[in-house]
Design a protein around this nucleic acid. Structure first.
Lengths: 160, 160
DNA sequence: TGACAGTAGTTGTTAGAACAGGTATTATTC
DNA sequence: GAATAATACCTGTTCTAACAACTACTGTCA
C-alpha cells in the first residue's frame, strides 16, 4: 500500500528514489530503446513502427475491412491521428480505402497486395529485432514480464 | 532456446503470436500509456516529460554544472537533440548556460532558482501519476518488474 | 419532419523527435 | 608548430504525434 523508500520521497530524486520511480524509469528507458531498435529494423523497408502495426492490424482482419477508429482501437497504444497514418499508407499504395455505401460516415480500409508483400518482407527484420531487444530474457521471464505489464494495463480501461 | 509458439510464426501475427511478440506488445502499450499519463500530469506546469527529466538531472547534479552531452548521458532514453531541449528550458528561464573558460567547447548548464521552484511544484503531480500508473502492482511486483527490465537494458551498452 | 444529439473522419496547428551535416575548439602527431 | 583528428555543440530539415476544432452523416424522438 506504500513505498519502501525511507520517507515520502524528499526533494532529492535519483537519491532516495522510490520503488515506483525506479520501475517507471526502467520501463521508460527500456521502451525507448526497444522503440529505436524496432524503428531501425523497419527503416530499410520504409515503414515506421506505427505504420507496421497498422498493416498488421489490417492483415489480421484480412477480408473484413475496418473503419478508421476500429483500427485505432486495435493498435497497441491508443493512437490518435489514425486518419493521417492511413493517409500515408494509402499514398504508398499499401492500403486502399473507400466510403461505405450503407453508412457514409464509415471508411472501409483494407490492406492491398503491395501492403501484404511489404509486410511479409519486413516481418522477419521486425521479429529479429524483437528477439534481439529482449534476448537477455528467457521465455519464462518474457512471459512473466508480459504478465506484469498486462496487470498494469488492466487498471486503465481508457482514461478518466 | 526458442519460442513456445506452434511453429516459426506463420504469416499470421496476433494469431499464433510468440511469447516475445506478446512481451514486446505489452511493453509498448504500457509504456505508451505511462508516457501519456506522465505527460498529462506535467502539462499544467508547462513541462514535457523530457524537460522534467532534464531538470531532474540538473537538480541532482546540483552545484556541479553539466555539459550538454553529459546531460544526455544521464537521461533515461538516449536522447539526441539535447541542445534544443536545453534551449527551451533556457528560454523559459529554468536553466542557465555559459561557455566554459577553460574549454570553450563546453557549455556549462545549471538549473536556476525558478527551475528548482517549478521542479518542486511539479514533482508531486509527477510522482502521483507514477503511482497511479503502476498502482495495480504491489511493491514487490514493481521491484520484480524493474529487475526484469534492467536485465534487458544490460544487454545493450549503446548500439552496434 | 425537423431539431437534437451522437458518431466517424478530417483538417489546422503546434511542438517535439530524429537524422544528418556543419562550426568552433581542443588534443595529437609528426 | 602546422596538419590532422577528435570532441562538443549547433543548425537545417523532415516527419510525426498530439490536441482541438470542424464537417458530414446517421439515429432518435417530439
Amino acid at each position: 500500500m506504500s513505498d519502501t523508500a525511507s520517507t515520502v520521497t524528499p526533494p532529492g530524486f535519483s537519491a532516495g528514489a522510490s520503488t515506483t520511480a525506479l520501475a517507471v524509469r526502467a520501463l521508460r528507458a527500456t521502451a525507448a530503446h526497444l522503440e529505436r531498435t524496432l524503428a531501425r529494423a523497419l527503416e530499410p523497408h520504409g515503414l515506421t513502427t506505427a505504420q507496421f502495426a497498422a498493416l498488421q492490424v489490417l492483415h489480421d482482419a484480412k477480408e473484413q475491412s475496418l473503419g478508421c477508429s476500429e483500427v485505432g482501437k486495435r493498435l497497441a497504444g491508443p493512437a490518435p491521428d489514425v486518419t493521417r497514418l492511413l493517409d500515408r499508407l494509402e499514398a504508398a499504395g499499401l492500403v486502399a480505402r473507400d466510403r461505405s455505401q450503407e453508412d457514409r460516415r464509415l471508411v472501409h480500409t483494407r490492406i492491398t497486395a503491395a501492403g501484404e508483400k511489404l509486410l511479409l518482407q519486413a516481418a522477419p527484420s521486425y521479429q529479429e529485432a524483437e528477439v534481439r531487444a529482449l534476448g537477455e530474457l528467457d521465455v519464462t521471464e518474457q512471459a512473466h514480464l508480459a504478465e506484469l505489464l498486462s496487470g498494469i494495463q488492466r487498471s486503465c480501461p481508457s482514461q478518466s
